[in-house]
């Protein structure tokens, strides 16, 4: 299946291309996040400018996909037919250890979770996706 199929997982770069490096890195099993090369501030994936200094200059730095659960939800209905995981499933919001950034992702390898739990990233490419997705599992 390709990303243009109706049942493909909605993933991959946006039309603006401002997030292309994020998705490219995931395919190489790296987490890369945008940083302003003018002032050093960490930026939001997919934005055009740095909100701290308005520079357009950007670098994509490799970041360790390790962090702490900031919050989570458990979905009990299948809202999305394209998702390769069926309800009930858990989504976590992870506060990364090394940078002041929080990222969403599906929890894999279990469904019990609490705020404060330690998690690490898992790179998965679902069968109906052209793109690799960063998911999370509880650290042992």
């Amino acid at each position: 299946m390709t990303a243009t199929s109706a049942e493909a997982l909605p993933a991959g770069p946006s039309e603006s291309g401002d997030d292309a490096d994020f998705w490219q890195a995931l395919d190489e099993h790296r987490l890369a996040l945008p940083r302003c090369t003018a002032c050093g501030a960490w930026r939001q994936v997919g934005t055009a400018t740095c909100p701290a200094c308005w520079s357009f200059d950007i670098a994509w730095d490799d970041v360790s996909p390790i962090g702490t659960v900031y919050t989570w939800v458990r979905t009990h209905r299948d809202f999305m037919s394209e998702l390769d995981v069926k309800a009930p499933y858990v989504t976590v919001l992870v506060q990364l250890d090394d940078v002041p950034v929080r990222l969403l992702g599906l929890l894999v390898g279990g469904d019990e979770i609490a705020i404060g739990d330690r998690v690490s990233g898992v790179f998965q490419k679902p069968g109906n996706s052209d793109w690799t997705i960063l998911r999370w599992e509880k650290s042992v």
Binding site: P10, A11, S14, T91, L93, L104, G105, W131, I133
Partner: peptide, 18 residues
Amino acid sequence: DHQYLPHGVATPAHVCAL
């Protein structure tokens, strides 16, 4: 967008639940 949908976060209920 694609910072949300691949993670099953697809409705107002999801973002409010988080």
